[in-house]
Simulated assay, not measured.
Amino acid sequence: MTSVVIAAHNEAAVLGRTLRTLLADAGPGEFEVVVVANGCTDGTADLARSVPGVTVLELPEAGKPGALNAGDAAVTGFPRIYLDADIGLDAAAVRALAAALDGPGVLAAAPGRRLDTTGRPLLVRAYYAINRRHPAYRNALFGRGAIALSAAGRARFGRFPDVVADDLFLDSQFTDAEKREVTSVATVVATPRRTVDLLRRLGRVRAGNATLRAGDDQVRPARRTSWLVDVVLPRPWLLPAGVCYAGLTVLAAASARRPGTRERWGRDESSRRPEGDPMTGAGS
């Protein structure tokens, strides 16, 4: 049995779609799905309970690490998939991720990623023109919204630490040879719909990554010039986008240094659209 853990904080707008996509073609008892509604003030828990085959836990306080730990304690199966509440992953994709873990020495797997920039403003599109080509995402576990671990992979660490960058933490637990990017599967990651939302998210992510790196020397170091050396210089036509990328990165770095950035919820709300909205897309 494959276990799926979904940490959900006020995700009523998108969680129903995620659960139905996951379970639509699943066989009876094939997946063990646990949704951990943490600090919710909307109908997240009730919505999850309305989907047959889903177990729901409720935590009074918001916090993804606590939700992941609670979900881990509740599930029993492997492989184990940690899925973001707004990311669509169907049964075939789950099977493909699980199959990748059967490879020799493979302990962790993640899908490819497809960035949805439809209708986004110029600066957002420019930023992701560089981001989608950034080598940091090659054979990485972060930035997809879905990570699969084998039993041996999960045994690499104890509880999830109280950090923002949970996917970067998981990535740091494994060597490149122990990870596998399953390119036959791709999650659709919706990008922010406004530049201000992008900056808010980048500031939060940068602050979270810096905190994790400061306390864990296993985490891959950031290569600040990679966007230029590895992306723009081999593709000179991307220079205008690179200038935008650099400018937004500098602004995000300044935001990350402010004490309040580390405490604020950094989720991009603009990409979380209710079902039925023609602009709906999975967020990150």
Rank of each mutant, 00 (worst) to 15 (best):
residue 162 D to C: 05
residue 150 S to I: 04
residue 245 Y to E: 05
residue 185 V to Y: 04
residue 145 G to E: 05
residue 199 L to V: 03
residue 155 A to H: 11
residue 217 D to W: 11
residue 232 V to L: 12
residue 111 P to N: 00
residue 113 R to K: 11
residue 241 A to K: 06
residue 5 V to T: 02
residue 267 R to D: 05
residue 97 L to C: 03
residue 218 Q to M: 15
residue 106 V to T: 15
residue 162 D to P: 01
residue 209 N to L: 05
residue 212 L to S: 07
residue 110 A to K: 01
residue 166 D to E: 15
residue 119 G to Q: 13
residue 156 R to I: 02
residue 249 T to V: 09
residue 253 A to S: 13
residue 167 D to E: 09
residue 251 L to A: 14
residue 230 D to F: 11
residue 23 L to R: 10
residue 96 A to D: 14
residue 134 H to F: 10
residue 97 L to H: 03
residue 41 T to W: 00
residue 173 Q to H: 07
residue 169 F to I: 02
residue 89 L to E: 01
residue 273 R to M: 11
residue 124 V to I: 12
residue 106 V to Y: 10
residue 105 G to E: 10
residue 198 L to P: 04
residue 284 S to E: 07
residue 215 G to K: 10
residue 7 A to H: 02
residue 8 A to L: 01
residue 108 A to I: 12
residue 90 D to A: 12
residue 19 L to A: 01
residue 124 V to K: 06
residue 254 A to T: 01
residue 208 G to V: 02
residue 139 N to S: 11
residue 26 A to L: 04
residue 15 L to D: 02
residue 163 V to L: 06
residue 134 H to P: 00
residue 89 L to Y: 03
residue 247 G to L: 15
residue 263 E to T: 13
residue 1 M to F: 09
residue 89 L to C: 09
residue 247 G to N: 06
residue 57 L to W: 07
residue 282 A to T: 14
residue 193 R to D: 07
residue 70 A to H: 07
residue 24 A to L: 14
residue 70 A to Q: 10
residue 213 R to P: 02
residue 201 R to N: 11
residue 280 T to I: 14
residue 278 P to T: 10
residue 26 A to R: 05
residue 103 G to V: 06
residue 212 L to R: 12
residue 77 G to Q: 00
residue 139 N to C: 14
residue 113 R to V: 15
residue 40 C to R: 05
residue 11 E to M: 10
residue 273 R to E: 09
residue 196 V to W: 13
residue 22 L to P: 02
residue 27 G to L: 12
residue 140 A to Y: 10
residue 46 D to Q: 11
residue 112 G to C: 12
residue 204 R to Q: 10
residue 7 A to T: 03
residue 29 G to D: 08
residue 95 R to L: 13
residue 214 A to H: 08
residue 12 A to G: 00
residue 103 G to H: 05
residue 14 V to D: 03
residue 93 A to W: 04
residue 269 E to Y: 11
residue 57 L to Q: 05
residue 24 A to F: 12
